[in-house]
């Protein structure tokens, strides 16, 4: 017998299938070298709930972003189509606390490059 799932269950299933995952899952045993990927993020987040980050990886087909200190590290996967103007993207992310943000790019030749940046999420206050 076949059960028809409600539409949102299909969507949820699709979303779960497209999990960003972890760096190890993306690399699948390969190693990533440094250089060739720019990861921009603030040293200190103005607001841990909305931290601007951008990735720029000329020649990449896909870039994944991870917040290594979040309960679930996956943040986003960017896949660049034939009409992308640059392998560049910018978004805003949630960080549960001070941590390293990592980006990994998969290049057209199947190799990987990575970049890391520490973003401080602070309670705030004080000043000069």
């Amino acid at each position: 017998a076949m059960t028809l799932l409600p539409a949102h269950a299909f969507a949820q299933a699709a979303a779960d299938a497209e999990m960003v995952g972890t760096p190890d899952e993306f690399l699948a045993g390969a190693s990533a070298s440094e250089g060739g990927l720019d990861l921009t993020a603030p040293e200190i987040a103005e607001n841990g709930n909305t931290v601007p980050i951008s990735v720029d990886a000329p020649g990449a087909v896909e870039v994944r972003v991870y917040a290594l200190g979040n309960p679930t590290p996956g943040v986003a996967t960017f896949r660049f189509g034939p009409l992308s103007g640059a392998q560049f993207a910018s978004t805003r992310i949630r960080l549960a606390g001070t941590q390293d943000v990592q980006a990994i790019a998969k290049m057209a030749d199947g190799s990987y490059v990575t970049a890391m940046k520490t973003v401080k999420v602070t309670i705030g206050g004080c000043g000069g």
Partner: peptide, 23 residues
């Protein structure tokens, strides 16, 4: 034709924002 295709995890902030470049 595709420009960009993004998978978002819940770690993307409220009111998702994207900036990118297109030909």
């Amino acid at each position: 034709q595709n420009v960009i295709d993004v998978v978002l995890a819940p770690a993307i902030s409220t009111n998702p924002y994207f900036e990118f470049e297109a030909q």
